[in-house]
Write a protein that binds this DNA or RNA. Structure first.
Length: 137
DNA sequence: GCCAACGTTGGC
DNA sequence: GCCAACGTTGGC
């Protein structure tokens, strides 16, 4: 079991939306590091969902429903998509500010590499964010 | 809306 | 293959 964090602009695609839809195709990634992370995702891996640009907080938990396949939205290039399924919202969203000020979360890409949209987390980092979020609602 | 950080592109 | 220019992301 591996742990990940993905970012989405809520006005484009929100956690509320994936909850309503029951699943989502995670497509449109056009960055090699992010793509390689998508390709490393395995069925059942845990994926935290972060709202960028607006909200700026981790809002919920998903899991990998379908491992990577060619991104149907890519007309050229070698890109991948995965399917995610919602598990549930965090009881308390975890703001970026909180993550930035937590000593045990200093080296995650959300803090160090602001532009990466799909990033790995260690189990300890994942557990810490879940703890800060007071678990699932 | 601004701008810093970073990735990509393209001229040489 | 280097590096300057440019585009995009995303926090502020």
């Amino acid at each position: 079991m591996a742990y990940w964090l993905v970012k989405s602009e809520p006005f484009v695609f929100s956690f509320q939306q994936i909850m309503e839809d029951g699943k989502a195709m995670w497509d449109g990634v056009r960055n090699y590091t992010a793509r390689n992370n998508l390709r490393a995702m395995q069925l059942g891996d845990r994926v935290l969902f972060y709202h960028s640009r607006e909200g700026l907080e981790v809002v919920g938990l998903c899991e990998v429903l379908q491992e990577h396949y060619p991104d149907p939205t890519a007309e050229t290039g070698d890109w991948s998509a995965v399917d995610l399924k919602p598990v549930g919202p965090l009881r308390q969203p975890v703001p970026l500010q909180t993550i930035k000020s937590d000593p045990s979360l200093q080296h995650i890409a959300l803090v160090k590499m602001g532009r990466l949209s799909v990033m790995p987390l260690t189990e300890a980092e994942f557990m810490r964010i879940m703890e800060l979020g007071a678990g699932l609602a």
